[in-house]
């Protein structure tokens, strides 16, 4: 199959869906800029013009609200936030409006909206330019949340998010943009709510999301040389969460490590741990669950601190060894 990068996969998905469906438009900061959203939106403005490729002033709350309003008027907007940190300004519109609208009016209305938030961190950008807020959105009823870890899913989940009749928070990570992988040229979807086993194993389950999936695969390669057989489960969707896949894998291995790029407290790892704790599989665990996640600390600037702050493959390797007591 043809290989392209993660960022090209997003760009291709946008070109294809916007061309095919007149209801779709994209709105947000930097969609016409040469650097703001990486190269995810390259070529869109030349092809589709300002009516459907709308670069905006710095007004996150209103722009998001406007996208919700357009969704209520038979459009299927994609609202982009070039960094998740800036989405706090839009949180009211996302949580109080987009997320509630279907339920609060007894199912009369729905908000077919893709809320695209980009994680952009590292490079000494510090606390307000680094955040990975998947846990916050996953907490809110009425939002679906997806996080693709590779080019195939980047395209397929974006198309699925756009086709979904509900608000979907689509979260990508700039650290993944140059990853290359197989991507079909035609339009396809990856089902929301389905995880996937990236690597089969029997000794320990590593549940990973987004960027941490690749780190988990690297870790599993290191551990394989030591004779350890790691199963890597890529969750892909945080909500709905593929509980069956999770329980089956942990039942098989009896051991669980969760690798997430967000903060630890009340993070995705906490939710997954609780799911296991509430299930029958809990008593089959052979060792305590370990979460590999960020310290409960705002992102620091200095690169020496960043290096200690962000989690990488070696942290997963250590967690697996600790779990297996090897």
């Amino acid at each position: 199959m043809r290989k392209i990068s993660y960022v090209q996969a997003i760009n291709e998905a946008l070109h294809q869906v916007i061309e095919r469906d007149k209801q779709i438009f994209i709105i947000g900061q930097g969609v016409t800029s040469p650097w703001y959203v990486g190269t995810t939106t390259v070529g869109l403005i030349d092809r589709f013009g300002q009516e459907r490729i709308i670069d905006t002033p710095v007004s996150e709350n209103t722009v998001t609200g406007a996208a919700i309003g357009a969704a209520l008027a038979e459009m299927r907007p994609i609202v982009v936030h070039p960094r998740m940190d800036f989405m706090y300004y839009a949180l009211d519109q996302i949580a109080n409006h987009a997320a509630t609208w279907h339920y609060m009016f007894g199912g009369q209305l729905s908000v077919p909206l893709t809320i695209w938030g980009i994680i952009n961190r590292g490079g000494e950008q510090a606390a307000q330019h680094s955040q990975a807020l998947q846990a916050i959105f996953t907490h809110i009823p009425g939002l679906k949340v997806v996080m693709p870890s590779n080019p195939y899913d980047a395209k397929g989940l974006l198309v699925a998010s756009i086709k979904d009749d509900n608000p979907v928070v689509y979260i990508d990570d700039r650290w993944l943009y140059e990853y290359v992988g197989d991507v079909p040229e035609e339009i396809y979807t990856v089902p929301i709510g389905k995880g996937v086993i990236r690597r089969k194993g029997k000794d320990v389950t590593v549940v990973a999301i987004s960027y941490m999936v690749n780190e988990a695969i690297k870790a599993s390669e290191v551990l394989e040389k030591e004779g350890l057989n790691v199963e890597v489960l890529d969750l892909r969707s945080l909500k709905p969460l593929d509980e069956n896949l999770l329980l089956d894998s942990v039942k098989k291995t009896g051991r669980l490590i969760i690798a997430d790029g967000g903060w630890k407290t009340c993070g995705i790892g906490a939710e997954i741990s609780a799911k296991i704790a509430e299930s029958n599989i809990f008593k089959e665990l052979k060792a305590p669950i370990i979460r590999v996640s960020l310290l409960d600390v705002p992102a620091p600037a200095s690169s020496v601190l960043e290096k200690a702050y962000y989690r990488k493959a070696e942290d997963i390797v250590s967690a697996v060894r600790k779990n297996l007591e090897v």
């Binding site: 710095v58 940190d85 800036f86 706090y88 300004y89 000494e124 950008q125 510090a126 606390a127 307000q128 330019h129 705002p298 620091p300 600037a301 200095s302 020496v304 601190l305």
Partner: peptide
């Protein structure tokens, strides 16, 4: 001035009346 935690966008010097800089526009 911010002990290396803030970087260029987050300068503060409370002793001279600068209680912080935010990189969130309008913050």
């Amino acid at each position: 001035c911010s002990r290396g935690r803030g970087g260029s966008m987050h300068l503060a010097s409370p002793e001279v009346g600068l209680p912080g800089s935010s990189a969130i526009v309008a913050g």
